[in-house]
Amino acid sequence: MKPFAYHQPDQIPDAAKLLASIEDSKLVAGGMTLIPTLKQRLASPVALVDLSKLGNLKGITDDGATITIGAMTPHAVVAASKLVQAKIPGLAALASMIGDPAVRSRGTIGGSVANNDPAADYPAGVLGLGATIVTSTREIAADKFFRGLFETSLETSEIITAIRFPVPLKAGYAKFKAPASRYALVGVFVAKFADGVRVAVTGAGSGVFRVPPMEAALSQNFHPSAIAAIKIDTDGLTSDIHAEADYRAHLVTVMAKRAVDAALS
């Protein structure tokens, strides 16, 4: 680890000011990605701005048609939340599948969404549910937020404060874990709303993406058989030592079917 300055502001504007004023500064939430990167000396920010002392960033609230989860809420809390389990059981299930118990206790929803790891689970839930990312300065629709490999539409000094999820009629997540890392080799989130179905895929490509043909088919008939024959183009899908693109494409269909099954069960 290389030396860096450490700030622990207790007001969001102070945190934003630090980010804006210190070049090469980084936010740290749960630190589940950032800290290992620092330890391996792969990143060397000048300063870390720790969000843990900011008030009101933790917790889950029921707004009726939506559920709002504070950015600093750990995965374990979302997984165990009676409210999330009752209203969006697929999202609670997704949170329970992230990493291991230690990661779920420290890692946060805001950190995961801001990092936008191409194999992380939350981006699939956020995009699949068409959630809204609430930041220190504005609200961003999930469809406009994720910009591919570790890229988002966040500005330098912008801080995610919460994610607001619309409550679907049904939703489910199915994850095929990469054998070693247990990130999603392919993860698919499906959500059924009154006005249609959304399908979001993580792990398969350079960033989370939707699958319009599956959405159309499931909007007609929300059943695994509706998408069994839909094949995903391998263009833009990842090939690595664990899986070539054609296998990932195949898994998208299999996991999408299983996600629908999970949503129906």
């Binding site: 095929f176 069994a228 664990h242 899986a243 070539e244 296998y247 195949h250």
Partner: peptide, 19 residues
């Protein structure tokens, strides 16, 4: 690995039931 087994099954050109 799953990738290797799936590929073997593809190459066996025996379609795996997709439900």
């Amino acid at each position: 690995t799953p990738n290797r087994i799936w590929r073997l099954l593809q190459n066996a050109s025996l379609p795996v039931a997709a439900e």
